[in-house]
Amino acid sequence: MEIREQTIAIVTTCGDDWGGSEELWSASACLLKERGNRVVVCKAGLPRKHPKYVQLAKKGVELCDIQLKTSFVRRVVARLIRRAAVWRPNETIPGFAQTATVRQFSKYLSKYKPDLVIVSQGINFDGLGYAYACLRKHIRYVIIAQKAVDFYWPLSTDRNLMKEIYDKANKCYFVSKHNLRLTEEQFGLRLKRSQVIFNPVKISRPVPFPTMEPVIHLCCIARLFILDKGQDMLLRILSKPLWKSMPIHITFIGRGEDEVALRQMASLLDVQNITFLGFKTDINTVWESYHALILPSRSEGLPLTIVEAMRAGRPVITTAVGGNAELLTEGETGFIGGADELSLEAAMLRAWEARDRWEEMGKKAALYVGKMIPEKPERDFVNDLMSMK
């Protein structure tokens, strides 16, 4: 039976107000609403005043904050109840499935009685508690995983229940082949109802390539979070005399919790051929000034910045983590190194030596990504949901 004129709940685990991981579900929410469905979005600490959420609300999407807000008196009473052992968590169920936000989300499930829940995860198991709440209430659910990390595996105490949650999902969506493969390996489970999907992008056509004289400009578009994005590796490379002497400038575009640390590191290492530009919304205008993307990631899903750079007609210098290399061909549309300084610098040197070919490589990148990435990935995603049995 097709899902039509039903209640669709979406729960997101994004810890920031907004991020690239939110683009797919938000675009899908609008499309689902346009098709006559009731759409409810749930998030812990939901920022109602954020422009993206304001836009969703204007389109009729209902917003629910599942972060408990209790008075001082109620917090004291709850603490006393716990100490008196009136309420104890079920010790046979892992903690990830019994958090306060999961319990609050479960209440919203009882209130709205959705026909389907979309669990949008930043990493491949950080939202499974919400999926478990659906499983307990016999509500259909699908899982989106925006990232899987080679060095971050589920706890042994959580793994069996998480495996069951994945196995019983109506469908599991991943943004890269790497994420799907690694998730299967982490849980020792073939996910037969799984699919690789893409996130929507903000660039629809190539942006004219700027002149490369007298300075070559690269940009690093990413959240300033070194554990995932690896900007510290790039700064160490740029601190070497060779790179200080080159006519090259790198701009960091984005914000994040490590911005101060990165600025201070750059000052310590006397790296002067860089700029921290902050967050920019008009990505088309950004690419008018830059010749290539550099992304020194330690872990990824499939970054929107890579797809957008390729669609803008720019080569990409990046690391072979997550799905970074799945759209790139070494020496033709980009340059791929490992997630370490030695290998990343080698990729940067190969790129530098081939800089006269960057414009042509960018044209190839735009043609390739235009064939591989749907114009409206959210439409394909929603169509798949609507035809689900």
Rank of each mutant, 00 (worst) to 15 (best):
P154N: 03
T99V: 00
P200F: 01
I139C: 04
R159V: 06
C219L: 14
C219T: 15
F174Y: 15
D115L: 00
V201Y: 12
I93W: 01
C172H: 08
L224M: 08
S204I: 07
I216N: 04
K229Y: 14
P208I: 03
N170D: 15
V196E: 06
E184K: 01
D126H: 07
V119F: 06
T101M: 05
L182P: 03
I143H: 03
R193T: 09
V215Y: 02
I221P: 13
K111H: 05
E184W: 07
P200Y: 02
R103M: 09
G188V: 13
K192R: 14
N170T: 12
G127H: 02
K192N: 12
K113P: 00
F174V: 11
I165K: 04
E213G: 02
D228V: 00
D150C: 02
A145H: 08
S106E: 10
E164W: 13
C219Q: 06
E91T: 10
N199P: 06
F209Q: 05
W87S: 09
S156R: 09
R103Q: 10
P214Q: 05
P208C: 02
R136T: 05
D126L: 04
N199D: 11
S194Q: 09
D232V: 03
Q104R: 12
T211F: 08
N160V: 05
A145V: 00
C219R: 02
F105G: 06
M233G: 01
Y132N: 09
F225C: 04
T92F: 02
Y130K: 01
A97L: 03
C219V: 15
K111S: 02
N90E: 11
R136Y: 01
Y141D: 07
H138A: 13
K177G: 14
I203M: 01
A131H: 05
Q104H: 10
Q121K: 00
V196S: 09
K107W: 01
G122P: 00
L155A: 14
Q186L: 13
C172I: 09
Q121M: 13
Y112A: 00
I203D: 03
H138V: 04
G129Y: 07
Y112Q: 01
M212H: 06
K107E: 10
H178Q: 14
D167G: 11
K163G: 13
C220H: 10
S110P: 00
V142F: 10
D232M: 03
P208Q: 06
A100P: 01
R205E: 15
A131E: 10
